[in-house]
Measured scan of single mutants.
Amino acid sequence: NEEPLPEGWEIRYTREGVRYFVDHNTRTTTFKDPRNGKS
């Protein structure tokens, strides 16, 4: 039961299956979860 991502964020996966987060607001990507700060 995960809380929803902030507005404008999306979860994607690399070809290796590593989860990362896309911030469409700033057009950046990060491996850090914007909901809780954990990677």
Rank of each mutant, 00 (worst) to 15 (best):
R12H: 08
P34G: 01
N25A: 08
T14F: 02
E10W: 03
H24V: 08
H24M: 08
F21L: 01
E2C: 14
G8H: 06
P34A: 00
D23T: 01
W9N: 00
I11W: 03
E3S: 11
D23Q: 04
W9S: 00
K38S: 14
N36T: 15
N1M: 13
E7H: 12
T29R: 12
D33H: 02
R12V: 07
D33L: 00
P4A: 11
L5R: 02
I11N: 01
V18H: 11
G8F: 05
G8R: 04
P6L: 04
P6K: 06
Y20H: 03
E10S: 07
L5N: 02
T14C: 07
K32N: 15
Y13H: 08
V22G: 00
F31N: 11
G17D: 05
R15M: 12
W9L: 02
T30H: 15
R27P: 05
E2F: 10
K32P: 05
H24P: 04
T30K: 04
D23M: 02
E2Q: 10
H24Q: 08
Y20W: 03
Y13F: 11
E2V: 10
G17L: 05
T14Q: 02
K32I: 15
E7D: 14
D33M: 00
R27N: 15
T29H: 14
K38Q: 14
F21A: 00
G8D: 03
Y13N: 04
N1S: 12
L5G: 02
T14R: 01
T14N: 08
P4W: 07
N25D: 06
V18T: 09
N25R: 08
V22D: 02
R27H: 15
W9D: 00
P4Q: 09
R35M: 03
N1L: 12
D33Y: 01
D23K: 02
E3I: 12
F31G: 08
W9R: 00
P6Q: 04
N36V: 14
P34Q: 01
G17P: 00
T30E: 04
V18P: 02
T14W: 02
E2I: 09
G17Y: 04
R27Y: 07
E2L: 10
E16S: 14
H24I: 09
N36R: 08
R35D: 03
P4G: 10
V22T: 04
D33R: 01
R15E: 13
E7W: 08
K32H: 15
Y13D: 02
Y13W: 11
V22H: 06
F31I: 14
E7F: 09
T30M: 05
P6I: 03
K38F: 11
H24L: 09
R27T: 08
P4S: 09
G37Q: 13
R27G: 15
N25E: 06
F21E: 00
T30F: 03
P4E: 09
Y20M: 06
E10Y: 06
H24D: 05
E2A: 10
D33T: 00
E2T: 10
R12L: 08
V18S: 07
T28S: 08
E3R: 11
V18R: 13
G17V: 01
N36S: 13
G17R: 06
E16R: 14
K38H: 14
P4L: 09
R19Y: 05
E10D: 06
F21T: 01
V18E: 09
Y20R: 01
N36L: 15
Y13M: 07
T14K: 02
K32M: 11
R27A: 14
R12C: 14
D33S: 01
Y13K: 05
W9V: 02
Y13A: 04
P4R: 08
D33K: 01
T14S: 08
E16F: 12
R27S: 14
T28H: 07
P4V: 07
I11D: 03
R35V: 04
I11Y: 04
T14G: 05
K32R: 13
R35Q: 03
I11H: 03
N25Y: 08
F31R: 13
K32F: 15
E2S: 10
G37Y: 09
Y13P: 00
I11C: 08
T28N: 09
S39V: 14
D33I: 00
D23E: 05
E3Y: 10
E10I: 05
T28I: 08
T30Q: 10
E10K: 03
G17M: 06
F31V: 13
W9A: 00
F31S: 13
P4N: 09
T29N: 10
T30D: 05
V22F: 15
E7R: 11
T26G: 06
E10H: 06
T28Y: 06
N25Q: 08
K38A: 14
K32Q: 15
H24F: 09
I11A: 07
E3D: 11
N36M: 12
R35H: 02
G8L: 04
R19A: 09
Y20S: 02
E7L: 12
T26K: 06
V22N: 02
F21P: 01
G17H: 07
E3P: 10
S39H: 13
R35I: 05
T29W: 15
E3K: 11
G17W: 04
G17K: 06
F31C: 15
L5C: 01
H24G: 07
K32T: 14
N1Q: 14
V18K: 11
D33A: 00
P4H: 08
R19W: 04
N36G: 12
E7K: 12
D33N: 01
N36H: 11
K38M: 14
V18L: 12
V18N: 08
G37V: 13
D33E: 02
R15D: 12
R15V: 12
Y13C: 08
R12A: 09
P34V: 01
R15F: 09
T26F: 03
P6W: 04
N1W: 13
N25L: 09
R27D: 15
P4T: 08
Y20G: 01
T30S: 11
S39W: 12
T28F: 07
R15A: 14
V18Q: 10
I11M: 14
N36I: 14
Y20K: 01
R12G: 07
K38T: 14
S39G: 13
E10L: 04
V22Q: 05
R15S: 14
R15C: 15
D23S: 05
V18G: 07
T14Y: 02
E3T: 10
G8A: 03
P34S: 01
R19G: 04
E7M: 11
G17A: 04
T26A: 06
P6V: 03
T26Q: 05
D23Y: 03
Y13G: 01
N36C: 15
E16P: 04
G17I: 01
P34K: 01
G8M: 04
I11F: 05
F31Y: 10
K38N: 14
T26R: 06
L5Y: 03
F21W: 07
T28G: 05
R12M: 10
T29Q: 12
R12Q: 08
S39D: 13
E7S: 11
Y20D: 01
D23R: 02
E16I: 09
E3A: 13
V22Y: 15
G37P: 14
G37I: 11
N36E: 15
F21N: 00
L5I: 05
G37S: 12
P6N: 03
F21Q: 00
G37M: 10
T28R: 09
K32Y: 15
W9C: 01
W9I: 03
N1P: 13
E10G: 05
E10F: 06
E16D: 13
R27M: 14
K38R: 11
Y20V: 07
N1I: 13
R35W: 05
I11R: 06
G8E: 03
P6D: 05
P6S: 04
L5H: 02
Y20F: 12
D33C: 02
K32W: 15
W9G: 00
R15W: 10
E10T: 07
E16H: 14
R35Y: 03
E7T: 10
R12E: 06
G17Q: 05
R19E: 08
R12W: 06
E10R: 03
R12S: 06
E16N: 15
T14V: 03
G8N: 07
E2D: 11
Y20N: 01
N25K: 10
N1D: 14
Y13Q: 06
T14E: 02
G17S: 04
G37T: 13
K32D: 15
E2M: 10
T29Y: 15
S39N: 12
I11S: 06
S39R: 11
